[in-house]
Design a protein around this nucleic acid. Structure first.
Lengths: 115, 115
DNA sequence: TCAATATATGAATAACTGTTCATATATTAC
DNA sequence: GTAATATATGAACAGTTATTCATATATTGA
């Protein structure tokens, strides 16, 4: 702990400690990111940027087994990234709000890549 | 595939498929989110919002073992979330750019919580 | 009611990941 | 050089998670 920036670092550490959100809140934020940290789920979100779709078409857009997609959709819904409504035989999924899109786009900006 | 929104969904699925980024790019974006999807790493990022810090003070701010923090820092650095420089005996870490902060804040907006 | 279709779910397995422990490297002071 | 301090690293273990397979539920049309 004898670093030459002792004073500034200690202040920063003190501020960081004081302002650290409670464990529960950190957990909630982490859960959001975890939801979109798997390529399979991220693809689903990318796909839904082009409009709402039923499961069948989501499977068509992202590939993989129907069962796997269904499991992932459940996770995405559980943490509020997507919403769904029944429409006859189908369940139609869509992004739950504009924040989801915004987070995706910001990540791409960070990567300096265009989607 | 006989949903009543057949036409629109099929168009959306077609657009989604055409615009789906290559596997490698999806992977990179997913890696960014994965990096901040663990409470331990997220705490480190929250801490660094208050200024650059050496490992010792990061440990002080986020808790946990030095070894664990060091491992996490390596991951965060590998995906470009933080940068580091040596300063004598210490290694000083800081957020690598403003996008990192922006992503964190956007996630909080999505959660309707203030940090 | 029965068949067909769309979606969801539970269990099991395989792969991945975070942490710990012990140790290694690098820098400074003596 | 040696001791002390700061940080990093490798291996092993434990916990988590994504996928698959088989099956269940729900809706529609006959």
């Amino acid at each position: 702990m004898e670093c030459s920036h002792k004073a500034e670092h200690e202040q920063a550490a003190k501020r960081a400690l004081e302002n650290m959100p409670p464990e529960e809140e950190v957990g909630r934020v982490a859960a959001i990111f975890k939801a979109i940290s798997e390529p399979s789920r991220l693809k689903i979100l990318f796909a839904l940027r082009h409009g709402e779709m039923c499961v069948f078409h989501i499977v068509e857009a992202v590939g993989g087994a129907q069962s796997a997609v269904s499991h992932q959709l459940r996770l995405l819904k559980a943490c509020g990234m997507v919403k769904s409504r029944r429409d006859g035989q189908n369940i139609v999924y869509s992004l739950s709000d504009e924040h989801v899109v915004a987070v995706l786009e910001l990540a791409c900006a960070h990567l300096h890549c265009k989607l």
